[in-house]
Design a protein around this nucleic acid. Structure first.
Lengths: 331, 331
DNA sequence: CACGGTGCTGGAAACGTATCCTGAGGGCGG
DNA sequence: CCGCCCTCAGGATACGTTTCCAGCACCGTG
């Protein structure tokens, strides 16, 4: 900026005014400054800018899991799009379900003075985020799951309703022995399990705890193995509700390997679901809307929007494609 | 930091020394400062830090296309992982194949004083990036495609070799009428087309220009429509080489809709390729390695690694799964 | 006892920007 | 004709660091 000022024969202040289009500057001076700017190829230093007191860094932090998971990818895409539209840049950081990594990542983001934080929290206490919120005045929005111990805006999908819808759909197609596969201690799958139980109860279908399979890890491989066990057991289920995209893939692999006619409904839609040998019925949530809403909420908070913390629950919808409409074999 | 200094009864300088563990400070003073730090919850301001001359902002920019595309997603994941490991944060920006958007995005990143830039460039001139490189001393690494008009490190996959391998594979299975579907004016599909031609020539298979289909846009829908036209034409091909993940999906949809036994090889692997009714043969590249290598290269450059610009070409491999091994119908 | 070296600490300056205040010059109303 | 306001421009300052240099006390050696 000083170089520009020198070249244009004005003071630094004047250049600043021209760049921001704020103060009163004579037309001719503006032209001279602009000429100098493009001659030098000057670009305002946003870092120095945000150092000034009361200035917003115009950068938000986005902390989530493995981008290879399409869920996180489309979340990120949507958040980045909204942020960019409002002039915010996005600092991306990942914490693969590891609380300690997450903590450090938050530190890095705060150190870079992000104006706000979008977090997909993993299990574990998040009271330290409350401190961040209070001490550094950095608003936070949680996505997909609420964080225990921290008070902030949350954007969720209707896990319980979706779980109930999936289960009810299978009941409606004649199933009475419906298995559910859940990942361990995830908030989301826990709520989906709740919906499952509720639907069973409502329809008077007896619950069989042997049909509730909690995996040690939420991987495709574990789900595949668990499904193998289920389907080759003495009293196999006639339908399976898998509560996660990864798990659904595992269930389908096992189903295909065993050539089993078991019905399946999965939570979360995925690509090519309609092109598999039997197209896959899913409960789909609008992942991009999740990201968009979170970003908008955050930017509102950064802009000083007051009020109590909000809790948004986005609707889900069941997409019938085939695996969910299979009827149980006649006994 | 001043607050910490005050609380510990020392000067700001001393706090800085403790935080960075650099200068000689008495043991007892260190403890006092550390106590003050944790009492206040102080976190070093990386922004102010990087304002100092000669200081690296420890942030790199990542500019690519739609994260919903798994290719970009795993690229981003790998780059973020490497960067994080080396203490760099990642500013993520997307430019959906729009040169003007890309230009602005680069400006935003430079304005935030990134120490380096990883770019997946679209077609169009990138001479302006050369200026960035020269003027702002910000090293750049191009990924997946080189940029015209700019001189910088490039990391590619073996497009031509992959295209030749895919085509040769189909020839080896008895095909003589092999169609290829390419997106318009992409560097990558152009090279893959070159490999296709080369393989045909090498094997003495006559080239039929009607079998080279250049789409107006590289979308799944366009590929699907084009495949419909191809397969219902007077002299349909017995095999199709689709040069992009998106295109492959479209080809497969058309193939399924028409129940056509046409052989297919796709460039780029994708999830569930092995679970479709006929598992899909693809030429796969290691997308994560692409991102990792680019990030490492960039960080080396930031660290002052000299030398001429490099050009890395990663190998690809053909994964035979089914659609590529179908033989042409007896005539 | 004087002097130089060493171990620790603090003051000043600089990075690039925006805001607050000051000031010069000109037009216009009282 | 004087003074006031308005337009335009510049100087000083502050943001939070780190680096350079200086200072102070102490110790050992000559």
């Amino acid at each position: 900026m000083r170089d520009v000022a020198e070249r244009a024969g004005v003071a630094v202040v004047t250049v600043s005014r021209v760049v921001n289009g704020l103060g009163p500057v004579r037309e001719e001076t503006v032209d001279r400054v602009n000429a100098a700017i493009s001659a030098i190829g000057y670009q305002r230093n946003e870092i120095a800018r945000s150092l000034r007191p009361g200035q917003n860094s115009m950068t938000v932090g986005l902390l989530l899991g493995d981008l290879t998971n399409p869920f996180y990818a489309s979340l990120a895409k949507a958040a980045v799009d909204v942020a960019k539209q409002d002039g915010y840049a996005v600092l991306l950081s990942t914490a693969d379900e590891d609380p300690e990594v997450e903590r450090r990542a938050v530190g890095e983001l705060i150190g870079r003075r992000v104006a706000g934080l979008i977090v997909v929290p993993d299990q574990g206490d998040h009271a330290f985020l409350d401190e961040v919120n209070a001490h550094d005045r950095v608003p936070i929005v949680f996505v997909d799951r609420p964080a225990t111990g921290a008070e902030a805006d949350v954007v969720l999908v209707d896990n319980e309703g979706g779980g109930a819808a999936a289960t009810q759909h299978l009941i409606d197609h004649g199933h009475r022995r419906i298995a559910i596969i859940v990942a361990p201690s995830y908030y989301t799958t826990g709520r989906r399990l709740r919906g499952y139980r509720k639907a069973l109860r409502r329809s008077g279908v007896p619950a069989d705890e042997d049909l509730v399979v909690t995996l040690r890890r939420g991987t495709t491989e574990d789900a595949c193995a668990a499904t193998h066990v289920l389907l080759t057991s003495a009293r196999p289920p006639t339908a399976i509700f898998s509560t996660t995209g990864f798990l659904t893939e595992g269930v389908l692999r096992a189903r295909q390997q065993l050539a089993a006619p078991v019905a399946v409904v999965g939570f979360d839609d995925f690509k090519l679901a309609d092109m598999l040998p039997t197209p896959v019925t899913v409960v789909a949530s609008d992942t991009e809307e999740l990201g968009r809403h979170a970003a908008r909420l955050l930017i509102d908070r950064i802009s000083g929007e007051g009020g109590p913390t909000s809790r948004t629950v986005l609707p889900v919808r069941l997409i019938a494609r085939g695996t969910g409409e299979l009827r149980p074999p006649d006994q």
